[in-house]
Write a protein that binds this DNA or RNA. Structure first.
Lengths: 411, 411
DNA sequence: CCCATATAGTTCAGAACATAAACTAAATGG
DNA sequence: CCATTTAGTTTATGTTCTGAACTATATGGG
């Protein structure tokens, strides 16, 4: 049957080299051509043959399998005004989808993402997750999930897998959230079966910043296969896309930009370190520097954040200085990250995107000061992703896995 | 016809999937099994079949091709005391090799590395390369190279390719040294033909730290496929091995640890930035802090370095403090790099290895302070690689390419 | 000395797959 | 109505791996 999450990758890389493997590769190849074209193009078998460098005969045979697996469907096409036999359009099956989910500090969310990466339906539920237990949060997510499963059934959508994003470090292989300090979670194992209709369906677990980076990838130009996504939420996370793939490092926790050291003699961080970026540019740090409390008072963070924006718009000096200081530190961290990763594009998401107008000048000046030779060659963008970014990214990545290993669904 | 549109990604993925590709993959597979076993094991075809998951029939056929290509040779074996037909041992052809070369600030070097990664012959020539032109340096390297080519011929060694390491940023694709400030080079194109016997032979160009990391890889445990190599030479470089592969980033310049920002308000760096690690832990910075000149005096750097060691051994305070301060900064840079790369092993090479006893305590303390949650899980090693490290690594990488694409040499 | 046993390696028939070329299908346009 | 054009399928062919049968060459016991 279907492979559990992690074996799939290993299997494709080092499977014994039999003739059958060629077909596996070619199924994926054809599918990737169809996916790259998008649903408006309605490629014919002949088009695919050209684009994939395979012969028409091979493509015909491969497409037959993909149709049988339900990954692709035919759409009749009239070619207007041109001679010759009309082609049959092929697109990714719009009735297949993947469940994307996110648990964040102040909300939970779920949504259905089709094979083209489009968000078909979603629901975001504000929820103070740090003030309830992990199992309560997971139960709430399970309910949300059930509603979306019902919606999928009502629309005739088949759910092929799921992805979950959480704001913390994860062990993808064993579906464990190792630590999510802003949720108050430590070593929380997930009951995947409760989150998906069939337990054998493919499931993956992501760090929030990584998932958002995957969602951002969809918004980038097709050639832009390398960038760093910086997620400014309660904590600060990073997601690195290298060669169109997510880079997570040996243990899966690469990209922790929030704990890059900015001020060696600075404040102590929640990670136990000192002078981390998060101690200056994290949400609580900015709020505190702006004179909006230290997190121990009664006002909710969301309230205090909206006060921050009011203060900024009113030209309040402490608020403006707090954000500028954060921008300066962010620029330093980005300078170091660019030296180590050598990407030429950085995308800022979450609150960093919202704070752009107050943050960017200080950030750019700081980057210019600390890495002048690369500052001019680096594109600094702000992401339009909202609260659905992470769930879309998580789902999209699972879709990518399915499209890369279609033979798992063929037979 | 339809528009090509977003086919770029699909096209770059790989060659068309024909049945013949299976053979290419399997040739590499068999070769990698033989290489992994080492020359002492003398694997039989039957052994290879087991290890590679291929059938005896396939292995026999594949080995025939590899023998014809000269990549592998047979060595007769008597199985002592066991029943059954004796096996024929197979090892990588010891008469094939690759030329490794290095241009560094104070020397040039070249050597012959066989397919198992062993250094067969080498020569290191001290030379003040910063005080002569690039073409003079290359001419000197050419001469050195000629001598080793003659030595190869005398020993019946066939040279299959070459690799060159330089202390600077390179464009691997076009064989251009983009900048090597410590050599005084800017945008220096290389005449590859002058450095290799046959122009069609495979040639690769590396950054010195990257090449050293590749050499270090050979010394690590077989399971240790991820580590950061930190090269403390005149400049400070980094080489990252992820999943047993060199990570160089989108433009090939990842790992520039020397320009990670350590002291936001620190000194101006040669890169134009401010507070880079190199401004505190680079050779000249350490020498200056130790009161051994600022690089403008007549004494050569090597002289001043040996004075530094004398001072350290004599317990001279300024020298000891200078090195400790460098260690402290190095610890901060490593803390940030560990957050971003998520490797669990760091190997220090070059002068950092030599300075270990004075540098390590401060470095460890600093790492503990700035990244306590990962400091304990991280192995910090010193590399035994000497002046031949970079050339061996460069050559070994070319060997790896050849072994991964043996079909290029078949028939 | 001969034969059972064990292991290495080769040969051969069969299956899976891609390919190229021939062929069928279905449209347009004069 | 037929030439032309393009889409898609069928068929013969070659490459490769596989599994089973077969050959080659050793050891060891009667």
């Amino acid at each position: 049957m279907r492979q559990p999450a992690t074996t799939a990758r290993a299997a494709t890389s080092s499977a014994p080299g039999s003739v059958g493997d060629v077909r596996k590769a070619n199924l994926a190849r054809v599918l990737s051509v169809i996916a790259a074209a998008g649903e408006d193009q309605r490629l014919s078998r002949a088009d695919i043959a050209q684009l994939s460098q395979l012969t028409k005969a091979s493509v015909s045979s491969l497409v037959t399998d993909l149709l049988a697996a339900g990954l692709v469907i035919e759409i009749g096409v009239h070619r207007d005004g041109e001679r010759g036999r009309p082609s049959v359009g092929l697109i990714l099956n719009p009735a297949r989808c993947v469940m994307g989910m996110e648990i964040n500090v102040d909300y939970i969310a779920a949504g259905l993402v089709d094979l083209s990466g489009k968000l078909l339906a979603h629901e975001v539920l504000p929820r103070a997750n740090h003030s309830s237990t992990a199992s309560e949060v997971l139960a709430a997510l399970g309910e949300l999930n059930q509603r979306l499963q019902a919606a999928a059934q009502a629309q005739g959508l088949m759910i092929l897998g799921g992805g979950l994003a959480v704001p913390g470090l994860v062990n993808e292989e064993h579906f464990i959230v190792l630590q999510a300090p802003n949720l108050g979670w430590v070593q929380q194992e997930l009951d995947v079966a409760a989150l998906l209709p069939e337990p054998k369906t493919r499931f993956r677990l992501f760090n929030e910043a990584n998932a958002s980076a995957l969602a951002q990838q969809q918004l980038m130009d097709a050639q832009e296969n390398d960038f760093l996504f910086v997620s400014g939420e309660v904590g600060i996370g990073g997601g690195l896309i290298i060669d169109a793939e997510l880079f997570v490092g040996p243990q899966g926790h690469a990209g922790e930009l929030g704990h890059v050291v900015i001020a060696p003699d600075g404040k102590t961080c929640s990670c136990g370190g000192r002078g981390c970026l998060e101690t200056i540019a994290g949400q609580e740090a900015i709020l505190a520097a702006a004179g909006l409390g230290d997190g121990t008072e009664t006002a909710s963070r969301q309230e205090r954040i909206s006060r921050l924006y009011q203060a900024l718009k009113a030209g309040d000096e402490p608020a403006i200085n707090a954000v500028a200081e954060a921008g300066k530190s962010l620029g330093i961290a980005v300078a170091s990250a660019l030296r180590l990763y050598n990407v030429s594009t950085v995308v800022f998401g979450g609150h960093f995107a919202a704070l752009e107008q107050w943050m960017r000048p200080a950030m750019e000046a700081s980057l210019q000061m600390h890495a002048p030779s690369i500052a001019g060659q680096t594109r600094l963008l702000c992401s339009p992703l909202g609260q659905t970014g992470a769930l879309v990214g998580a789902a999209r990545s699972v879709v990518g896995d399915l499209l890369e290993a279609p033979y798992q669904l063929v037979d």
